[in-house]
Amino acid sequence: MAAKKSVSAYRKSQRKTAILFLLPNLVGFLLFVVYPVFRAAIISLTNWNGFKQMDFVGVRNYVSLFSDSTFIISLQNTLIYTIVTVPLSIAFGIVMALLMNLKIPGIKVFRTIYFLPQITSMIAIGLVWSLVLAKYGPLNQILMALGNSDPPKWISSTKYALTSVEIVSIWRSMGYNAIIILAGLQGIDAVLYEAAKLDGANAWQSFVHVTIPMLSPTIFFCLVTQMISSFKVFDIIIAMTQGGPGRATNVLAYFVYNKSFVDSRFGYASAAAFIMFAIIMFFTAIQFYGQKKWVNY
């Protein structure tokens, strides 16, 4: 009895502390982040044109979206893009982080170089990649030298435009993930590796049985944030393809942008954003429930 009481008193004191700790962030978060989202949710039920007109239209926007071919295409493109880029950018990120973690002279130089795609401006990245991917650009010259007589037209064909964007996106985000994973690698206790060695594990076995489980909270973080940012991909589309050719690289965020800022249909655009939210939330929830199976805290 007494023990139970002290636990509940202890829990209560934790709640007070928790409130105090959360407060500084929570106040601003509710005001600057949650409130605008809430407003957008209301807007999604209206026909707001960005100025005075704002009539309540119920779920009409949501219903019409599903018969909008551009919306459907952008949804498909976004899903494909996410399915391709998330696993690859994390897998490459892990490999890169392991390389960055090597204890060899000069590794700091490599670590800095691997970070460069992160800091190079999107405009420059868009420019240089469109040159690299040009019909007679360096990449196709390599492919032709390797015996491919009819290399892809990359960003100027509907067939390869999305792939091109995916390549650049993976190229850019693997360094981002690598930095986060590198920080996670540092948290792994060296004792564990020594124990594995004593048990006769080779490098691969200790990677699978020590590194990956110990890294799982970090990998989980990368998985969730990378998925969210892949669903919201925008900058790279603007810099490389503007959604084209045709609608081949039209993605959800680009659709939302066009509907609001070109067509002045803010209600419609907000509705699209909340459908997008529902989809991301669904996948995130799966990951959250799924994490108990593989994430090791």
């Binding site: 605008p36 969210i228 800022f261």
Partner: peptide, 11 residues
Amino acid sequence: LGTMMIPYQVT
């Protein structure tokens, strides 16, 4: 987490 999933274009 949920708020991270709303694109900036609408907020």
